[in-house]
Amino acid sequence: MDRAAPAPAIALEARGLVKDFRGFRATNDVNLQVHDGEIHAIIGPNGAGKTTLFNLLSGFLKPTAGEVRLFGERVDTLRPFEIVRRGLSRSFQISSVFPTLSVRENVLVALQSPTPLPHRFWVPLSRLESLGERADAILADVGLGGMPGRLAADLSHGEKRQLEIGISMTQDPRVLLLDEPTSGMGSEGIARVIALVRQVARGRTVVLVEHNMSVVAELADRITVLQYGSVLASGRYEDVRRDPRVIEAYLGEDGGHA
């Protein structure tokens, strides 16, 4: 008799997460399991609690109740930079690059953060060149290898998103959180980001908040649907999109994009 395949390891887990803001409950008893190596999408209408959940998972907010575990270790008591060093990085919905630095300098600054260099105030910028090979490899991976000297301020919206993902990759994360990576993009930019997410997902776990259901259908192995701060449904995309509660609350009468 064939043995059942072992259950995949849990990379990121939320247990009973609650977050209250002065009487308003932004997340309510959220339970989430993200399997190691999968692309997991978090969807829901505006105000569903998606960004709050991301902030809780990455340590930028502390839960009122509940806990977050990264590969089994409890991390909600840690500061964001400590969680990064445990293997979780994230991007933000609002651009977070240094506009007056070049594309390459943005990546170099991020690469030096876990080294002793930030504490050596009088070390010349040239010392960062020891990290140059890694910076160039990251830029190539995110499709910006041809513009290392370009000012970040001069990048298009889509290129800034690519740079932000590159910055997130500097810590070599095992889990990468992407907050609306295709927001404000046209079809060409969306196609580039889909290809980029697939590339960076090789050998790691990706969790993304995304409004574009075509992107979710293209990328996600599993999805979690939030409504009013609670989990409405979770599972494979094809199963969740047919859930009557999800259709009524979010996807529309046709069940979303095929």
Rank of each mutant, 00 (worst) to 15 (best):
L17V: 10
L57A: 09
G132R: 15
E13K: 11
E13R: 14
V200M: 00
T170N: 04
Y237S: 00
I167S: 02
L251W: 14
P80M: 04
R15L: 10
T224C: 05
E248K: 13
F21I: 12
R242N: 08
G186W: 05
G256N: 10
M213D: 02
R241N: 01
H257E: 15
I43M: 13
V246S: 06
R69A: 11
P63K: 04
F92W: 12
A137C: 07
H119G: 10
L61N: 05
R174V: 01
P124F: 02
V18W: 12
K50G: 03
N28R: 13
H119V: 06
P114E: 03
L163C: 05
R127K: 13
V216Y: 09
G59Y: 12
E188C: 00
A153N: 04
L108Q: 12
R3E: 15
S234E: 15
M213F: 01
S183K: 11
V175K: 03
D76M: 07
L163R: 04
P173Y: 13
E253V: 12
E129G: 04
E238D: 14
V18M: 01
E73N: 07
M213P: 02
F60Q: 08
T77M: 05
E82V: 06
P244W: 14
A137K: 15
M147T: 15
L131E: 12
E38Y: 01
Y237F: 12
A48W: 13
R15A: 07
K19E: 02
F21V: 09
G72P: 04
E210S: 00
Q162C: 09
S183Y: 10
V193D: 06
P45R: 06
E73P: 03
V175F: 04
A11G: 07
P148I: 05
L56A: 07
D141A: 14
I247V: 15
A201E: 05
T205W: 03
T51D: 08
G59F: 11
G255S: 11
Q93E: 09
A217V: 06
L56S: 07
G44Y: 02
L125H: 09
S96L: 04
R86F: 13
V200T: 05
V123L: 15
G59T: 09
I190F: 06
L196M: 13
G72R: 01
A201Y: 11
N55M: 04
T64A: 03
F60L: 12
G146M: 10
L12P: 11
R3S: 13
A258K: 08
L117N: 00
G186S: 05
T100H: 14
H35T: 02
R161Y: 07
F92T: 01
G49Y: 12
L70I: 12
E133L: 08
G49H: 11
G87N: 02
T205V: 01
L12S: 08
L57E: 10
D141Q: 15
P114H: 03
G149D: 15
S89W: 06
G186Q: 08
E105Y: 12
